[in-house]
Design a protein around this nucleic acid. Structure first.
Length: 558
RNA sequence: GUCCCAGUAGCUCAGCUGGAUAGAGCAACAGCCUUCUAAGCUGUAGGCCGCAGGUUCGAGUCCUGCCUGGGACGCCA
C-alpha cells in the first residue's frame, strides 16, 4: 500500500475509534468512512462528513458529534496536526505534511512500477476496440478508439487487472465478397485482360495497389484458375494484405492487439450454429414471416431482432452474439466493447443476447466513442486536402504528430463529442497541453545535466536527508505524486482514461511551480541539492509512467 | 416517434460514487529571465453550471418535463 492510502486508512481508524470512545454508535452502525479532498485548502487536507451521517443514529446534532469526535481523535496515529469542525458538521483534518517525505524513497524504489496496485484484484478483462472493417483505411473515429482503448488497457493493467486487447475482424460479410470480386477484376486488368469493374465493386486506388502487389508476388499464377477458386484465393490474399496494412497502421500508432479474432473462424468452428441452437433451446427465438427472430424485447430491447433472414442467410447479429458468447466462454470476468456512436443501437440487443445465453448483463460493459470533428482555423475539416476523402488516422498522426494525437484523444472523456483542434495540436508552444507535460519531464533531465556540470552530480543511490524537504511547494508536489496510484486505480475502475492527462497536467503544474520557487541545483549545498534532485527524479518517474499509460513519449530534452 | 451523447468563464473542457465560496488551459490585463530550459512562474478579471419543477440537512452531480446541438434507430455490416 502506498503512503497516502496508508495515511487515509489510519485517519479512518482514528475516526472510528473516536466515535466508539464517545459512544455515538456501535461498531456495526458506523458507515464506511469517506474522506474527501476539499477543493478549498482552508478546509484541510481531508474532510469527513461522518458526523452528519451519524446524526440519525446518535440522535444528536452533527456539530455536537463532530466536536466529540475531534476531542477523542488520536492525532499522532493519523499524522494529523489539527482538526476543525466546520459548517454543518464537517470534520476538517489538517495533516502534518512531513509524512509525505516518505513518498520520495518509495517512488525511487518502485521506478517504472510506481503506480501499480492490486485494485483490480486480478479481474480479467477483455477489451475489444477499433474492430473496423478491414476493407478501408482507419479514420478519425477509429483513431480515437485506438488511442482510448490502448490507454484504457494500459491503465487497467497498472491497476492490477489482467487485460487482453482484441480486434474483431468482420471477414465474413458481403464487404469481403465485394473485396474478392474487386480484386479479381483489378488483378485481371493488371495482367492486361479486358474486364469491366461492376458498379458495386470497390473502385478505390487501394484495391488496385493490392492487385498490383499480388501480381508482383504471384505473377499470373491465378489466371487459369476457375472463377470460383480464384475468388476464394483473392478473398484470402486480399484479407492478408489488408490486415497487414491495418496492423502496420496501428503499430505506427503505438497500438497492438493480443488477439485478432476472425468472424469466419466462428462459422468454421460451428459456433454460430451452436449459438443459434442454444438460443433456440433456451426458448429465446421464434419463427415469423419466414425468418427466425430473437426475442430480445424480453430483456429490454425495443424490438425483437432477426437472426436468420427469410432467404436463410444469417444477419450480422447472430455471429456477433456467437462472438460474445465465445468471449464469455473463454472465462473473462468482464468484457469491454469500445464502439463508435454509430453502433450504439447495438448495446441493448447485445445485453439482451448475453442474458438470453445465461450470463449477467454486468459482464458486458459498453464504452461509446462519440464523434470527432477536426477543427482548423476555427472551421470544421471533413475531407483530406491530399486525397479528397475523409481524413485518415495515419494522415492525422503525420500532420499533428503522434504524441499530440494520442494525448488529445486520451485527454477527453470518450463519450463526449470531440473537437480536435489541429492548430493547437500542431503548435509548439505553451498553448499545447502535451508540451506542457513533456516540458516538465525534459526539465528534470536538464537539471541532472546541470548538476553534473556544476560538480554536484545526482547520485540516485546516495543517502538522502529528507528533513531538508520542508516547504509548501514541495509538499504540494509530493502530495500530487502520492496520489498517482489511487488516481490510476480510479481511472481503471471508471474506465476513465482521460483522468490521466488531467492528472499529468496538475502534476506538471505543481512541478513547474516548485521549480520556480526553489533553486534545485546549488553547489554550495550538496545535501540539499541531492534531496531536491531526488524529488525532481521522483516527479520525472511519475510523469514518465503517466505518459506511458497514454502512449506518449517522455523526451529528455525539447 | 424511440434511444444515446452533450449543454459549466469569450473559446476548449475538468468536476471522481451529491458536500462547504464551481476549477484548469487558452484568450484579456499586470508583473517575473546578467542565476538550473520563459514551451515556465506569480497575480487580476471573467460563471442564473441550457430552462422549469422535484428528491434532502445539502444538487453542476440524482429524478421528471421541456429547449438547443450532434448522432443512432434495416430481414446492411
Amino acid at each position: 500500500m502506498n503512503i497516502l492510502e496508508e495515511t487515509k486508512q489510519n485517519i479512518r481508524e482514528a475516526l472510528r475509534e473516536a466515535v466508539l470512545a464517545n459512544g455515538f454508535a456501535k461498531e456495526e452502525e458506523i458507515p464506511t468512512i469517506i474522506l474527501e479532498t476539499p477543493r478549498d485548502k482552508n478546509h484541510g487536507d481531508y474532510a469527513s462528513n461522518l458526523a452528519m451521517q451519524l446524526a440519525r443514529v446518535a440522535k444528536k446534532n452533527p456539530r455536537e458529534i463532530a466536536e466529540g469526535i475531534v476531542a477523542h481523535f488520536d492525532k499522532e496515529k493519523a499524522s494529523a496536526r489539527t482538526l476543525e469542525v466546520a459548517g454543518p458538521g464537517f470534520i476538517n483534518i489538517f495533516l502534518d505534511p512531513r509524512f509525505l517525505r516518505q513518498v520520495i524513497p518509495a517512488v525511487l524504489r518502485d521506478g517504472a512500477a510506481y503506480g501499480r496496485s492490486e485494485a483490480g484484484e486480478g479481474t480479467s478483462v477483455l477489451v475489444e476496440f477499433v474492430s473496423a472493417n478491414p476493407t478501408g483505411a482507419l479514420h478519425l473515429g477509429h483513431a480515437r478508439g485506438a488511442a482510448v482503448g490502448d490507454s484504457l488497457c494500459n491503465i487497467l493493467d497498472m491497476a492490477g487487472y489482467k487485460v487482453e486487447r482484441e480486434y474483431y475482424i468482420n471477414d465474413a460479410g458481403n464487404q469481403i465478397d465485394k473485396l474478392a470480386l474487386s480484386l479479381d477484376i483489378r488483378y485481371l486488368q493488371a495482367l492486361g485482360q479486358n474486364v469491366e469493374m461492376p458498379e458495386d465493386a470497390y473502385q478505390g486506388p487501394d484495391i488496385m495497389r493490392i492487385a498490383d502487389a499480388i501480381v508482383n508476388d504471384h505473377g499470373d499464377a491465378f489466371v487459369s484458375l476457375p472463377e470460383k477458386e480464384r475468388r476464394e484465393k483473392f478473398r484470402e490474399l486480399g484479407l492478408d494484405y489488408l490486415l497487414e496494412k491495418l496492423k502496420a497502421d496501428l503499430k505506427d500508432f503505438r497500438v497492438s492487439f493480443d488477439t485478432w479474432f476472425s468472424e469466419t473462424s466462428l462459422y468454421m468452428s460451428g459456433k454460430v450454429e451452436e449459438t443459434l441452437e442454444t438460443l433456440r433451446a433456451n426458448g429465446e427465438v421464434y419463427e415469423e414471416d419466414g425468418a427466425t427472430w430473437f426475442q430480445s424485447t424480453r430483456y429490454g430491447d425495443d424490438k425483437d431482432r432477426v437472426l436468420v433472414k427469410n432467404d436463410g442467410a444469417y444477419t450480422y447479429l447472430l455471429p456477433d452474439i456467437a462472438y460474445h458468447k465465445d468471449k464469455l466462454d473463454r472465462g473473462f470476468d468482464t468484457l469491454v466493447d469500445l464502439f463508435g456512436a454509430d453502433h450504439h443501437g447495438y448495446i441493448a440487443r447485445m445485453h439482451a443476447a448475453i442474458q438470453a445465453l445465461g450470463f449477467p448483463k454486468e459482464k458486458l460493459e459498453f464504452q461509446v466513442g462519440q464523434n470527432v470533428n477536426l477543427v482548423k482555423g476555427g472551421e470544421r475539416v471533413k475531407m483530406s486536402k491530399r486525397t479528397g476523402n475523409a481524413v485518415t488516422m495515419r494522415e492525422l498522426a503525420e500532420d499533428v504528430g503522434l504524441d499530440a494525437t494520442r494525448y488529445f484523444f486520451a485527454m477527453r472523456s470518450v463519450d463526449t463529442h470531440l473537437d480536435f483542434d489541429m492548430d493547437l495540436a500542431v503548435e509548439e508552444s505553451n498553448e499545447n497541453p502535451v508540451y506542457y507535460v513533456q516540458y516538465a519531464h525534459a526539465r528534470v533531465s536538464s537539471l541532472f545535466a546541470q548538476a553534473a556540470e556544476k560538480g554536484v552530480a545526482y547520485d540516485p543511490e546516495g543517502e538522502l536527508d529528507l528533513t531538508l524537504i520542508d516547504s509548501e511547494k514541495a509538499y504540494e508536489l509530493l502530495k500530487k505524486i502520492g496520489e498517482f496510484p489511487e488516481m490510476v486505480a480510479g481511472a481503471a475502475e471508471q474506465y476513465a482514461q482521460h483522468r490521466i492527462p488531467n492528472y499529468l497536467h496538475e502534476l506538471s503544474s505543481a512541478f513547474h511551480s516548485y521549480y520556480n520557487a526553489e533553486r534545485i541545483v546549488d553547489p554550495e549545498a550538496p545535501a540539499l541539492t541531492q534531496v531536491r534532485l531526488a524529488l525532481a527524479n521522483a516527479t520525472q518517474t511519475v510523469l514518465r509512467n503517466g505518459l506511458t499509460l497514454v502512449g506518449v513519449h517522455a523526451p529528455e530534452q525539447m
